[in-house]
């Protein structure tokens, strides 16, 4: 087991690097607040980043062996369909997750 001193130092390094990464854009951005570039990014970034995060959370999926990613596909499709229809975030997430878990247990 690593010593407490090492653990605290390593955690502090992670804290410092993470905070700097999260703070970096704001230091530059204050001067660019009303620029058209930032406006364009604010419109186009969030949706794209969410799509990337969806793929990221599913990166471990194995499509070559049973159940061939079917539960996850069902879960994503169910969540999306429900959200396009009812526009209720909590309902979409709960029902989509339930659909995924059910498909996994049956598969």
């Amino acid at each position: 087991m690593p010593s407490n001193g090492y653990l605290v130092a390593a955690l502090a390094v992670m804290l410092a690097v993470t905070f700097c990464l999260r703070a970096a854009p704001f230091a530059v951005l204050n001067r660019l607040r009303d620029s058209p570039v930032v406006g364009f990014l604010a419109d186009t970034m969030p949706t794209g980043v969410m799509v990337i995060l969806v793929v990221y959370t599913l990166r471990g999926l194995d499509l070559t062996t049973s159940p061939y990613g079917l539960p996850a596909s069902l879960g994503v499709a169910g969540t999306a369909a429900l959200h396009l229809w009812r526009r209720n975030a909590l309902l979409s997430i709960v029902a989509g997750t339930a659909l995924y878990m059910l498909a996994r247990h049956l598969g």
């Binding site: 969030p46 949706t47 969410m50 799509v51 995060l53 969806v54 959370t57 599913l58 539960p71 996850a72 879960g75 994503v76 969540t79 999306a80 959200h83 396009l84 975030a89 979409s92 997430i93 709960v94 989509g96 997750t97 995924y100 878990m101 996994r104």
Partner: peptide, 15 residues
């Protein structure tokens, strides 16, 4: 499988 909620969340937020 409950952690699929995170995937579902990102789907909802993308929409």
């Amino acid at each position: 499988g409950l952690d699929f909620a995170l995937t579902a969340l990102f789907v909802v937020l993308a929409i």
